[in-house]
Amino acid sequence: MTSDDVRTRIIATADDLYNARGIQSVGMDELRTAAGVSLKKLYQEFPSKSSIVMAVLERWHASWTEGLDARVRQADAPRDRLLAMFDYLAEWFGQDSFRGCGFINSFAELGAVSPDVAEYARKHKESFQVYVGHLAADAGAPSDLAPQLSILAEGAQTTAAIAGTSDAAGHARRAAEVLVDAALMRPSRRAG
């Protein structure tokens, strides 16, 4: 097994454990055992728990970005692409492994004590708003639509995690339809 294979296995195992139970509750010994690697090998690949946490955050970011973009690209019209993100959320919320947004969870758990985690979570959320901003611009909507839709999506993630149902995605999508349609009807949309 190559070093890349070992690294990938450790990250995947940490991802599963952190998602299921939180980051702080998972120790290095438990991670080593679950990943099936020696403690020496674990520390060769990741010199600290924080380096594993950052690798998991990178994995979460890539998974979110790729999954969201794939779902959005399935929509033909610019308006539909703006709303497709809520369809992606509905699919994600319906997965058995859904425990809420890993970035919101990790920020809540470690943001006050880990500047790296806090900064990565901020950058992830910022990149989402930029992405939504591009979708809004492609639709001819004013720039203020992007943060509005992003807030709806963020609220839906938190609500779905707490409620344990995917209903929040549908509610957020219907609210987004109202916002999108109102934004596209505003005369100032070309100046946005």
Rank of each mutant, 00 (worst) to 15 (best):
R71S: 14
R122W: 12
V113I: 15
A90T: 02
D69G: 01
M54H: 11
V113A: 13
A77M: 09
E126V: 11
W92I: 13
V117E: 02
E126M: 11
W60Q: 12
D80W: 01
S97G: 01
G102M: 09
M85R: 13
L83K: 03
E66Y: 00
V117A: 13
S51G: 03
S127Y: 01
D116V: 10
G102L: 07
R73L: 09
M85Q: 15
D116S: 15
A84K: 01
A108E: 12
H124G: 01
P78F: 05
L57E: 12
S97W: 07
E109F: 08
G102W: 05
E109K: 08
W92P: 00
Y88I: 03
E119H: 12
Y88W: 15
R81P: 06
D80P: 04
A121K: 06
P115K: 09
D80I: 02
K123V: 08
K123I: 05
G111R: 07
G100V: 06
D96G: 13
W60C: 06
G111Y: 07
D69N: 14
E91N: 01
L89E: 09
R71V: 14
A84I: 04
E119W: 06
M54S: 11
W60A: 04
R73D: 10
A90S: 13
L57Y: 01
S51N: 07
L68H: 05
T65C: 03
A55E: 09
L82S: 02
K125R: 13
M54C: 04
S114H: 08
S114I: 06
Y120H: 14
E109W: 08
M54D: 10
V53N: 04
L83G: 02
F98S: 03
D76E: 14
R59I: 00
V117C: 08
F93P: 05
T65G: 00
R81W: 06
C101V: 01
N105C: 08
L57V: 03
W92M: 11
S51R: 14
S114A: 12
H61K: 14
R73F: 00
D76A: 14
E91G: 10
G102F: 06
R81S: 07
R79N: 10
S51C: 03
V53W: 01
R71G: 02
E126F: 12
A112V: 04
E66F: 00
W92H: 07
S51W: 02
A118M: 11
A55F: 05
E91T: 12
R73T: 05
T65I: 00
A118W: 02
L110F: 08
R99W: 02
E58L: 04
L68G: 02
V72A: 06
D76L: 10
Q74T: 15
W64Y: 15
V53I: 15
A118Y: 02
D116Q: 15
L110D: 03
I52S: 07
L89C: 12
R122C: 12
L83H: 03
E58D: 15
L68E: 05
D69L: 08
A77P: 00
A62F: 02
E66C: 00
G102Q: 07
L110R: 12
I104G: 07
S63C: 04
Y88S: 04
